[in-house]
Structures are given as C-alpha cells and as structure tokens.
Design a protein around this nucleic acid. Structure first.
Lengths: 219, 219
DNA sequence: TTTTTATAGTTATATTTTTCACATATAATG
DNA sequence: CATTATATGTGAAAAATATAACTATAAAAA
C-alpha cells in the first residue's frame, strides 16, 4: 500500500551541484585571466577542492560537454556554465538595511564581475541616505517604486532580526521571489519563495567546533 | 576484491547535523528571552524550518534527552547543546583584513552572545589602526605575538583574494587550525586544517538562479 | 490506580549525493 | 594512417542524509 513516488528536492533542484558550478566558474575566471586555455576535470577539481569525478558528473547533469581527450576549453566552458544561470541576463537586486553587513555588501566589488546588479538599498534611518556609496540609499517609502521599476526579483535582507520578518513580508507582497537573509531568524514565507539563510556566526562556530573537537562522541 | 571499509566524513563528522544544532540554539535563545520554558521537537522544527523527526534525530546523534511527554526544557536544552561546542570554553579568534567584510564582522554584535571572542584584527595598511572600533587593528608584524598570547586556533580571512593564500600560510605556520575564508579562492592547506569557505557572491547567485529558473533541464 | 494520550527515542525505509569503474572517444605520436 | 595514451561521460555501487513508521515512556485524565 506504500506509494512513494512523490518527488522531493522540488523547489530548487540540483542545488548542491549548482553551488559547485558557481565554484568552477570562479576558478575558471581566474584561470582565464592567467591566460590558461584548457582545463581538465582533474585540474578544475584540484582548484576547487572537488573530486574530478564530481566535476564531470556535475557537468553531465547540465549537459556540458568537453573533448574526450583534450579536456575543456576555458572560454567555452565559462560560457556554457554561465548560460546555466544567466539565461535571463543580469539581475537587479536590492539590499534591505545599511548596517554593517548591508553596507559591506553594497561596497563589495565582486558583484560587478558577476553581473549581479545592486540597484538600490534601503534603511529606516534617513541619515543613512548621506552615506558615501555607489549604491543609493532610500527610505522604505520608495521600496515599491524601485522594485517595480527595476523588476527586482531578488533581495538581500540585512536588517536587525526584529525587523526581518516585517521587511520580508513587504518584499514578498511586492513580488520579490528570492531572498538572501542575513538576519538570524527563520522567515515565514509562502512556499514558492526561495530563501537562502546566511548566518555568519554559525559559519564561524562550525569551524570552532571542528577545531576544538578531537572527534564526536568519543565515548 | 573490493574493500570499502574506509570511513569517510572523517575530518569533521556530522557537520550537517551540527549546523542544525547551531540553528536550534539560535532559536532557543530567542525563545528563552521571550520567557518560553518548554519546547517540543515540533515547535523547534517549525521555528528553524526543519522537520520534527530531523530535530529528534539530531538530538539523538548527540545523545541529548528530553522528557517523553513534556518535550524539552529550554534552559537545559540550550546548556546541553552548548556543551557540544563549548567544551573548551569560549574561543579567541582573529580577523585578517579590515576591508568591508573584515570591519563588518569586527562590529558584528552577534558574536558576543555566542561567546565568540574576537581579540584582534590585522591589516597591512597601517592607517587602519586609527579605525574607531572595539577590536584593535594591528599590522602583520604583531600576528605571531597575538596568536601565541591569546592561543588563537581559529581565524577569519577577509583580505583580497591575491593576498589570501599568503596570509593563510602564515596563520597555519603559527599553529592556527581553523579558517573561515571569505576570499573567493580555494586555499591550499595541510589536511588537518579545517577550512570553511564563505562566498557571498555565490550565496546570492544561487538564489538568483533558483528564482529565474522555472525548472532545470526542461527539455 | 488505571487508562489514555501526546511526545520522545529509535529502527527501518527512502532519497540524495558521492564515488567507483569502465567503456568510449579523440588528440597526439610515430 | 594506424596506434596509443589519456580524458571524458555515464551507469552502477556506496555513502550520507532525510523521512517515515513504529515503540516506549511519562504526564494527564478518568
């Protein structure tokens, strides 16, 4: 009577594989600037800390082909990989909150190379509008206008945790579908919304644990 | 002739489970300040976006017990969870690089609650020493002294990618064993070193992909 | 005190992800 | 132009992870 044909991993499939694709791309861009023309799954794996088999498997998932003796052409491979996530062209995103994290993201130069286009940031504190920054700072009353004008589908939440849920709600109501959340709260959202929680304290603590730990449950 | 008794997942086992333990703790701390005395696996799961079964399973891995009808006492549970990663007391860590990310981490108030103790930060630019910040800024010549005095075992690398490998090398030579790396480079380290790469661009791009993508390989 | 009931704890099952193994293709070589 | 060496591409096996199903237990109710 058991019937287990419900497909899981359904909201955003292949996420792990995709994360590695992003890694490969980063590595390839570096190799490209060094003038490297050709890579092998082994080379790329070593660069990114992934096994060669895993690299090939990931490519196979996305139907990316190489030459069965000569590896992969760097330029072509980058183009192939980017076609996976840039099919809609570059995306306009916004940053909610101009505190420490919000501002450091606003000034983060890496995004430009990646075609991540931060069009605006928001903060309840009007004095933040005077911040010297490439990215304009607005108060929340202009949120709807900006989201609409730039067709913003993705937003970064970098507001204090008490404010995060409310900001999130507003974003979702305006049609934002993807959120990168730096507040240490689990946001309640409709199921079609993609949330990526980034908790910097946890990132650090997980390393501290591994370092101070000889091995778990050493009973 | 096949012999597959080599245990994998060996450097830092149970990492995924541990990551969730950190999530639970965060949620519990919030519930604690709200005066909540008791939680159930179901409650905690809902708070953290994890299934109730998963919560119980994670606890079972770390031999954490509740009451078989009354759930878990919040205070006791927090203490139990923290005993997993705080058995060595609070850890002194340092931040390498006082650019955007380094500075925002240095000013990040969440660490205090978490017993993450940032004792110093470093930057090649001596003018950074004049930054107004709780965390002192030194040039690299004092690195050895600080690592030794504060018994630093974990460091955050937030320097430009070109400098990251060199900084990393120095840290490892001084006995640092755990690194949280914000530079978009894969660091070459001896195998006993724990590395956690955090790539903010990738965090954002992976969401952009999921949002703009109706479904993968829709051939 | 016994029964009921809700929830923890655990074992079994399913799913996902990674690794292995090898057939296959192709650039390089003589 | 045939041969060879070396990477790729992929189906199968294994490992890791998550989910579900079930059992035991303790609190509450009768």
């Amino acid at each position: 009577m058991k019937n287990y044909n419900v497909k899981k991993n359904t909201i955003c499939p292949l996420r792990k594989s995709l994360r590695r694709i992003l890694l490969y791309r980063g590595s390839l861009l570096r190799l490209q600037t060094l003038g490297v023309k050709r890579v092998y799954s082994y080379t790329l794996g070593k660069e990114t800390g992934v096994s060669a088999e895993q690299v090939r498997k990931d490519f196979s998932v996305y139907r990316i082909k190489g030459n069965q003796r000569g590896g992969y052409h760097v330029d072509k491979l980058i183009a192939d990989l980017e076609s996976i996530f840039y099919h809609n062209g570059s995306q306009n995103i916004i940053i909610m909150g101009r505190g420490n994290i919000g501002s450091s993201l606003a000034n983060y130069s890496n995004f430009i190379q990646r075609k991540i286009n931060i069009v605006a940031s928001f903060d309840i504190d009007p004095s933040k509008q005077r911040l010297r920054s490439e990215i304009p700072v607005y108060t929340l009353d202009r949120l709807g206008e900006v989201v609409k004008r730039f067709e913003v589908k993705t937003a970064i939440i970098a507001v204090p945790d008490i404010a995060a849920q409310e900001v999130c709600k507003q974003l979702v109501e305006l049609g934002v579908e993807g959120i990168i959340n730096f507040a240490p709260v689990i946001l309640k959202v409709p199921s079609h919304i993609i949330i990526n929680n980034v908790n910097l304290s946890d990132e650090i603590e997980s390393v501290i644990y591994c370092v101070s730990q000889p091995g778990p449950l050493s009973t």
